[in-house]
Design a protein around this nucleic acid. Structure first.
Length: 129
RNA sequence: CUACAAACCCGAACUAUCGUGCUGUGGCAAACAGUAAGGAAAGUCUGGACAACACAGAGCAAUUCACCAGUGAAUAGCUGGUUAUGUUUUAAACAUAAAGAAAGUGCCACAGAAAAUAACUACCUGCUUUUGCAGGCAAAGGUGAAAAUGUAAGGUAAGAGCUUACAAUAAGGUGUAGUAAUAUACUUUAUGGGUAAACCUUGAAUGUUGCAAUGCCACGUAUAGAAACGUUUGAGAACUGCUCGUUCAAGUUUCAGGGUAGGCAGCAAAUGAUUGUAACAGUAAUGUUGCAACAAGAUAAAUGAUAGUAAAAAAACAGAAUCCGGCUUACGAGGUUUGUAGUUAC
RNA sequence: GGUCCUGUGGCCGAGUGGCUAGGCAGAGCUCUGCAAAAGCUUCCACACCAGUUCGAAUCUGGUCGGGACCU
């Protein structure tokens, strides 16, 4: 029985090439305070159907602790709500790269961020299908 | 008891569920077990470890430090002591980048006669005759941050450390105390401002560059282009920054363009300037010995979410990136000590 | 991660320890029938905190910004 709510090394978006492609060629939309970049790729991801990255601007949060806090919340909310996205990709046999960028200047609570993340993932599914 | 200030201590517990990095066990798949951020991880101000290069020589430059002793791997640290100054305040405490201004050079605005071989007014002598000229002198003169050590007497034409007495400061000598800085007594000499966080002098020290160092593996590209200089008439390179000197030397430099942007070691610890603890030595910093323990290691970069546990809360400053010592800066709640103020009781 | 540089009005930019130049911009006036140009006047500054000094934009230390280089 494989774990469902995971977010391990394989699922992280690390390759600089894929990131460059995502930001230059990919599509994007905003569910405030999250900006979502996504791009459908073909046969470039080993052993997984999706790779996800998170980020915060150093401009808005100067201290590393606060940036870490935001990134952890983003990872956690994605982890808790990613199930429907995975099902869609497995059914259609697609591969996807996504990047969640936090664009607010204030810290956020877990509950509100989770709600936003649910909306964002629904919207992403809609755009894909 | 309350409030404020300072110093020190401490600085995010435990359980369950879902997840993350690393390590181990696992047909190396699932899974399980272990472990996982600070006192400042910060600033990069400092001292090292470690690594690469260099290590025939000479000179110059540059940088750092500066009372004494101790401590330590160590050169801005720490501990104890000494002197001076300042602040609070009258008796101690606290703070201070504490060699040299009698080696030399520079600077000292404005004001003031004069800011450093002092001479405008004044005073005295001589000449002249009103005016002034020559010489002497440095007591008095409103300034200034700073004015040639102060007081008294003698002395003189007038005066003057010119002489004497007392006092102050500085330097030397001798004795005493102390490891020493220094203190103190006696004695001799001097009384030529301040500034070295101005140049500088003296003493001590420093090879350069930093893990983006460095070694190895894999993959890929253009046996491609242009310009300049050059092959004994020596471009250029090494010997640290410069010069001399020495050695090597046939390619070197710049521009435009192309490719890659992966991995392993360094690097994460059972032998280390390690951590904890106890005893001993020392005023202390610190050291010695015994016992116990091995404790993050990522690379778009790991610690989170939810619920519960004591009345409640889990907060401030803040996130390791080769590793240690120190300094500096930021900081909540609580505790301890000291001080100040107020209130209550005796 | 490491090595360095820098901070002067709204903007640019001089400044041997002794009153912070100058230009552009802004405001007012003159000139003009009205504007522009020109002229005159005016306004607004040494990043912050300590120390050295009689006196600090300048010298020294610390703090906070901004920037450059090394792969």
């Amino acid at each position: 029985m494989p774990a469902i709510f995971t977010y391990n090394k394989k699922e992280k978006l690390k390759s600089k090439k894929l990131l460059d492609e995502l930001f230059t060629q990919g599509n994007s939309f905003v569910v405030f305070p999250i900006k979502i970049f996504f791009k459908v790729v073909e046969n470039k991801l080993p052993d997984t159907t999706i790779q996800v990255g998170v980020g915060v601007s150093k401009k808005y949060f100067k201290h590393a602790t606060k940036r870490n806090r935001i990134k952890r919340l983003l990872r956690e909310t994605y982890r808790q709500n990613k199930l429907s996205l995975h099902e869609l990709l497995n059914n259609n046999n697609k591969q996807l790269t996504v990047f969640f960028l936090y664009i607010d200047k204030e810290l956020i609570s877990y509950q509100t961020l989770e709600n936003k993340m649910k909306i964002a993932i629904e919207k992403l599914i809609k755009q894909l299908s």
